[in-house]
Design a protein around this nucleic acid. Structure first.
Lengths: 204, 204
DNA sequence: GAAAAATATTGAATGGGTTCATTTTTTGAG
DNA sequence: CTCAAAAAATGAACCCATTCAATATTTTTC
């Protein structure tokens, strides 16, 4: 009657998540063995697999959290009354990039991206891709908002522009996580430079 | 005195390459076991590893061939006297996409991309990234060429535009290889639509 | 409250990429 | 031709993620 089962389950889930997060950050994703995670969580290897489909699935919990928060913070920003297209892009993209390393390391991002490309039919990839699309839509929404408010030319295809800007943001982020040397400031300024022509030309 | 050693080496290398290419295409990259490749080539597993650093390294031979040919065919196209920016983009990008599945399957592309992100310090990734940069430069060159010939506005940053267009091409290609349903015609038209605003606005 | 059913845990076994100590082959000097 | 050194080939052993049949625990039924 206590829901003992559910209680234990929740507890174990918490312990496994904590152990994995800690080890991923500590020794890196690749070096964190399932056995180590299970040991640290006080369960067996088999139990780990009852809670998570596989090692990559573990990452999604964290990736998901990271991106959901990014989306939320982006949504509030879109409502602002931006006066300048380039500035608006920089603000939104800045929010994305600034938040990106809150829960995930570069290595964890690389692994997540790598998995989502390598196994596109896995639930992992599906979820990752869905998050990407929501981010892309958000950039499109920003462009549409600017157009409605008369800042962007009436004759531009907002989705086309939004998707192009987002794809560029994404690709540059891949380059960023591939190189431990690069920092967020450099990333931002490179993207701002790339955005400049488009931003200025679509401005009324 | 015959250079017997060198001769055998070249022969084995050829046999391993042929076996791997054939199996990757036939049963897919993941299902092709090193043991199978070695068997088909008539060598031992250990010998495979004397010739290729690892399984992913095998792919690079093919990826490299594919991209080198794409670069060559792109280079001749840049010299043409394009009159329309959108058309010029579509022609170059079309060449890239049309050639992309000559030697590689979508699965092989996914694996190659996935590896290049997951292990950025590996020789594999370095080579892959270098090829990507050359492609990006080629798009920049096209924009510069159009600007020199008075078709693109004098005040645009050709590299910024070129990089943005290429990054979008690349990201869309990732989406393409992630989904076995998508075809090249659809890919081309989606990218053309995304390019349209930028192409029209940078035109004199 | 005892037995049956449902659910969860376990760790040894599996599979495939990669390594490495040992063996075989080739080369070149005498 | 002979033999020692160099180069190449070999496959059993290793590492880890993942699976699964056996075991243990919790819940439900009567």
């Amino acid at each position: 009657m206590t829901g003992l089962r559910a209680q234990k389950k929740a507890d174990k889930n918490r312990r496994i998540l904590a152990a994995a997060t800690s080890l991923f950050r500590d020794v890196g994703y690749d070096s964190a063995r399932i056995e180590d995670i299970a040991d640290m969580a006080g369960v067996s290897v088999g139990t780990f697999y009852n809670y998570y489909k596989n090692k990559g699935d573990m990452l999604m919990a964290t990736v998901s959290m990271e991106v959901e928060e990014v989306l939320t913070s982006g949504a509030t920003l879109i409502a602002h009354n931006h006066l300048d297209v380039g500035r608006a892009f920089a603000d939104l993209i800045g929010k994305y990039y600034d938040h990106s390393l809150t829960y995930l390391s570069k290595e964890m991002w690389r692994t997540a991206m790598s998995l989502s490309i390598a196994q596109p039919d896995s639930p992992f990839s599906k979820r990752y891709t869905a998050l990407d699309h929501r981010l892309s839509k958000q950039v499109c929404d920003l462009v549409r908002n600017l157009q409605t408010r008369g800042i962007v030319r009436k004759d531009v295809d907002c989705d086309a522009v939004g998707e192009m800007v987002f794809n560029n943001v994404n690709m540059m982020f891949i380059e960023f996580v591939k190189d431990e040397e690069l920092d967020i400031a450099g990333l931002k300024s490179a993207v701002a430079r790339q955005n400049a022509p488009l931003a200025s030309l679509i401005t009324v």
